[in-house]
């Protein structure tokens, strides 16, 4: 992946701008069971270390999450949550405070509906052995397993189905290019040009997208239908940048939207 070193260096700098600070969305559902299940899905989509903040009717609840694991409830906590749960690192599913946290959150969210949630960079590091995998939380919290397709599966399916419609594409996770498609020269050109596009995209993201959304897709195309156009997709913490002929973009973009439309 050394040919992507410059792009990954640029991505690392762009991520430092902390766009995630303004990246809010909602846990959708009504009542404790539904909202806790939505929280599990949110944890399952969070790979990089993040402080997830839920805006509940009784005040904000902050959670440390990384690598699809719930690591801790962070202080300060609303008055209705036991103080003893705050800042307690959760090593595994056997920790009795995990069940207590689930029950406390369920009670706190009993009357709530569609809770806003924001993700910020986590400023406190927990050990890599700390955290309960999201996939284990439904059993201990007695809530439904998330059934919606996962962001990485959605992106993988979309990229796999691109076929010859795209000239080149790069899949990006966090700050790394993890997969590529297309002929070598086209991929090399895309990796060169992607940094320029992403610099302007991240710089103006908040002006272009004012409503939070799990998935965003941006197409910019010239009038010449045979010339390269750019398609950048983001879903959760996964993204991809695609070069394809401008004339193909409405079809490619429609395919993406079919997978992410709410």
């Amino acid at each position: 992946m050394s040919e992507f070193a410059r792009l990954e260096e640029k991505l690392a700098k762009l991520r430092q701008r902390e766009r995630i600070a303004g990246e809010g969305r909602k846990l959708r559902g009504k009542g404790g069971d539904a909202l806790l299940a939505a929280l599990v899905a949110e944890i399952d989509e969070t790979i990089l270390p993040r402080r997830l903040s839920l805006v509940t009717p009784q005040g904000p609840v902050h959670l440390a999450v990384a690598n699809r694991r719930l690591q801790a409830l962070l202080a300060p906590v609303p008055g209705s949550l036991p103080e003893g749960l705050a800042d307690h690192a959760l090593p595994d599913i056997e920790d009795p405070k995990l069940a207590e946290l689930g029950q406390s959150l369920k009670t706190l969210l009993a009357e709530a509906e569609n809770i806003p949630v924001t993700a910020r960079r986590l400023d406190r590091a927990f050990g890599s052995d700390i955290g309960v995998p999201a996939v284990q939380l439904p059993r201990i919290w007695t809530v439904a397993q998330p059934t919606a397709a996962k962001p990485d599966d959605i992106l993988s399916g979309f990229l796999a189905d691109l076929g010859d419609a795209a000239l080149a594409w790069l899949r990006i996770e966090g700050e790394e290019v993890t997969l590529q498609g297309g002929e070598e020269a086209a991929v090399a050109a895309l990796s060169e040009q992607a940094a320029i596009f992403l610099d302007s995209y991240f710089g103006k993201f908040d002006a272009a997208y004012r409503e939070p959304s799990l998935a965003c897709g941006t197409v910019i195309a010239p009038a010449d239908g045979s010339a390269n156009a750019v398609f950048f997709v983001e879903i959760g913490e996964f993204s991809a940048i695609i070069h394809a002929p401008a004339a193909q973009m409405p079809s490619i973009a429609s395919d993406w939207q079919r997978r992410v439309a709410e």
Binding site: E211, S213, G217, T218, V219, I220, A221, A246
Partner: peptide, 10 residues
């Protein structure tokens, strides 16, 4: 640029 889409799930 001639054409642009800004798309979300909504």
């Amino acid at each position: 640029a001639e054409l642009a889409f800004l798309m979300t799930g909504a």
